[in-house]
Design a protein around this nucleic acid. Sequence first.
DNA 1: CTAGAGGTTGACGCTGCGTCAAGGTCAAGT
DNA 2: ACTTGACCTTGACGCAGCGTCAACCTCTAG
Lengths: 253, 253
Amino acid sequence: MDDWSIQEIAKLAGTTSRTLRHYDDIGLLAPSRIGGNGYRYYDDRALVRLQRIMLLRDLGLGLPVIAEVLDREASAQHALLGHLEWLRNEQERLARQIASVERTIGALEGGERLMADQMFDGFDHTQYKEEVEQRWGKDAYAKSDAWWRGLSADEKAAWRERATTLGTDWIAAFERGIDPAGDEAQALAQRHFEWLRGIPGTPGGGAGGPTKEYFLGLAEMYVADDRFGANYGGPAGAEFVRDAMTVYAERNL
Amino acid sequence: MDDWSIQEIAKLAGTTSRTLRHYDDIGLLAPSRIGGNGYRYYDDRALVRLQRIMLLRDLGLGLPVIAEVLDREASAQHALLGHLEWLRNEQERLARQIASVERTIGALEGGERLMADQMFDGFDHTQYKEEVEQRWGKDAYAKSDAWWRGLSADEKAAWRERATTLGTDWIAAFERGIDPAGDEAQALAQRHFEWLRGIPGTPGGGAGGPTKEYFLGLAEMYVADDRFGANYGGPAGAEFVRDAMTVYAERNL
DNA sequence: CTAGAGGTTGACGCTGCGTCAAGGTCAAGT
DNA sequence: ACTTGACCTTGACGCAGCGTCAACCTCTAG
């Protein structure tokens, strides 16, 4: 008989018997013959198929796809081209992750600078301490400060990114000239509300979310103070944001 | 109560309630409070922890590692540096895979050239047809040829690589001047035997492996024909290989 | 006759949740 | 009071590809 036992063919192809049993289970590669004792035996045609399987597997293709290719249900080119996209996307993902990890490590080694960051809705955290304390009390500032300082540099970056995204969305909405009381602007106000809610220790943080006073107070401050307003496209944009927020507050808070 | 329901905190952190239950299950993030009805509730401290979890998770860290970092059992720097290695290795792996896939696609598009490849132990497949037929008959050549043509370009490359590796190992052994009858050289002869066995359709392919005649015939041919001998470091190397193979054949075949 | 190598069929484990399934709870509307 | 409907709970399977026991035959050599 010109065939091999399961371990023999496994060695020839550089794999394991367990793998071959698995391939049998899922129908990818059946033994060419099964002995009366239940033993699996493979011939040279099976070896060729197995070698193709190993090759495609090493290229990263999934077993179902390999089965399609080998059974002529799909062309190898097509499958490989699709797979190539996958691989490239994965590589980009990894590149981004590597960059993020490097930046994070750098930040940690840099002593985890906590200051010179933005908070309280885009404020530099320490620079505007007086305004915050004056408006919402020393306690509000202290609690928020403690929370903020507890975050790592990257976490802060994430928060800033959320703030930035929200800001640019506000600006885009303003520039399109939509109605501050319309659905779209109100949806933004809703997001603004949720965002504030995510800052523990402030009058806005907590399950209930910002109080009406805090929400309206912020809205007015965006207009009154250009340092805030800058985050929303300047005085005109800030007015738009304030209007939308005011409508939202009246309707929901 | 300054806390949130499971869905609320999930939205605040940009994840799902299922994930939070999972984190509870594995002990990564327990709810700060559990209602009499079994509901999970999370406070601001839990939110901060959750946000850190999401950040580290986005960097690609595993949940157990994240737990260690957050519980101060391991430093973030250390964990991230280790992770960075992981990521770089993965990226290299992907790069190699991408290159392989591209080469394979190119080969397929190139019409899958089957000739100008090596076989029958390093022979150019078609170039030495006569010798092969003369030594082992037309049938041997035809069967092996059919098998060989059935392989893809990459599969052939894999076979050549195995041949090359074996060849360089032989050469290295020869240059170190070891005993052809010693354990090391005999182990190489064993590998040579296994390798020949993996070529179906030849006098060497099949469960039993090469016959003694085929094995010895090849060994002599390595010495007699420089085209073979070149694969084993020239005439002197070929003699070493022949001696080792002869000993092996006498002992085991 | 027995040991040892090798074969068989289950079945769990791993990573990180997504996705039902079956069934309580709660606020709102009728 | 009753019914929705939204949200909560605890299981438990599924995925990709095998590694790794476990418990139990089978074959070969001494």
